[in-house]
Amino acid sequence: MKKTIITLLLPLCSLAVLAQTKKPVAKKTTTATKKTTSVAKPNPVTFKSSLDSASYSFGIGMASSMKNEGLTALNYDLLIKGLKDAFAGTTPLISEENSRQAISNLFKTMSQKKFAPNIAEGKAFLEKNKTQPGVQVTPSGLQYQVVTRGTGVKPAATDTVLVHYKGSLLNGKEFDSSYSRNEPLALPLNGVIMGWTEGVQLMQTGSKYKFFIPYNLAYGERGAGADIPPYSTLIFEIELLKVTPPAKAAQQAQ
């Protein structure tokens, strides 16, 4: 930058000196002539082989996929270097683990920016909801409310539970319900989202609880299908009907 500024100043200094030392001269009338300059057009890309067209197609496909995920630009020099190093068998500049982490961090940052309203909505809801009568909060941030307290056994994380349930988003949209199907669901308690695994263990058989599950205890940054967007705080009503220990569940399955 400094060199550029000095370069620009030199002609100005020369003009100033000339203005002081030279005597004024009569101005000559000159006729300005316009010069037409033609802008060189870039040479059109031609595909000379199937490898050429496939190479370009790889680039288009990769970029389209990443663009759909919210990525708008890359460091193209390093992208090409990565491709060349991989094909040449050169030792990568970063480890495979660090590569996966870097990609994960990039997409996570973009996702959080894209779904910032979901995150803010969930945080505001939970802050207000925890002050409501009867709402209790666990150390993990799970919130729950006892609708009906049962008198049966509490399940362990390794048990299979039979439940009736209804799940909805904060806007009230219902995304799943065993009540609508008129059929309770049996599932292993350690095979569901963390909010369920933790919450249902608080219940006794015959209980009905209402759970308010932060996104990090639900489906997180990925969401679930078309009905549960990323970073969604979820509301579940769960009725615990039956608890089956692992050994007995295995016998029933056989």
Rank of each mutant, 00 (worst) to 15 (best):
Thr4Ala: 09
Ile5His: 12
Ile6Leu: 12
Thr7Ile: 11
Leu12Val: 13
Leu12Tyr: 13
Cys13Gln: 00
Leu15Met: 12
Ala16Thr: 07
Val17Lys: 03
Leu18Ile: 08
Thr21Cys: 03
Lys28Pro: 05
Thr30Arg: 12
Ala32Glu: 02
Ala32Met: 06
Thr33Ser: 04
Lys34Gln: 11
Thr36Tyr: 11
Lys41Val: 01
Ser49Asp: 04
Ser50Met: 06
Ser50Trp: 04
Asp52Ala: 06
Ser57Asn: 10
Gly61Gln: 10
Gly61Trp: 10
Ser64Ile: 06
Thr72Asp: 14
Asn75Thr: 14
Tyr76Asp: 15
Tyr76Val: 15
Asp77Ala: 15
Asp85Cys: 10
Gly89Met: 12
Thr91Leu: 13
Pro92Lys: 12
Glu96Asp: 12
Ile103Val: 06
Asn105Val: 00
Phe107Val: 05
Lys108Pro: 02
Thr109Glu: 10
Thr109Cys: 06
Gln112Met: 15
Lys114His: 11
Asn118Val: 12
Ile119His: 15
Phe125Val: 07
Glu127Cys: 09
Lys128Trp: 08
Asn129Pro: 06
Lys130Ser: 15
Val135Thr: 03
Gln136Val: 08
Thr138Trp: 11
Pro139Gly: 12
Gln143Ser: 00
Tyr144Lys: 00
Val147Thr: 10
Arg149Asp: 11
Ala157Pro: 14
His164Pro: 04
Lys166Phe: 07
Gly167Trp: 05
Ser168His: 11
Lys173Ser: 13
Phe175His: 05
Ser177Pro: 01
Asn182Gly: 09
Leu185Lys: 07
Leu185Ile: 00
Ile193Phe: 12
Met194Lys: 09
Gly195Leu: 06
Gly199Ala: 04
Gly199Gln: 06
Gln201His: 09
Gln201Glu: 07
Leu202Glu: 01
Leu202Ile: 02
Thr205Asn: 02
Ser207Leu: 05
Ser207Pro: 03
Ser207Cys: 00
Lys210Phe: 02
Lys210Ser: 00
Tyr219Lys: 07
Glu221Gly: 11
Arg222His: 13
Ala224Pro: 00
Ile228Ser: 04
Ile228His: 01
Tyr231Leu: 00
Thr233Asp: 04
Leu234Asn: 02
Ile235Lys: 03
Ile238Ala: 05
Lys242Asn: 13
Thr244Arg: 07
Ala247Asp: 13
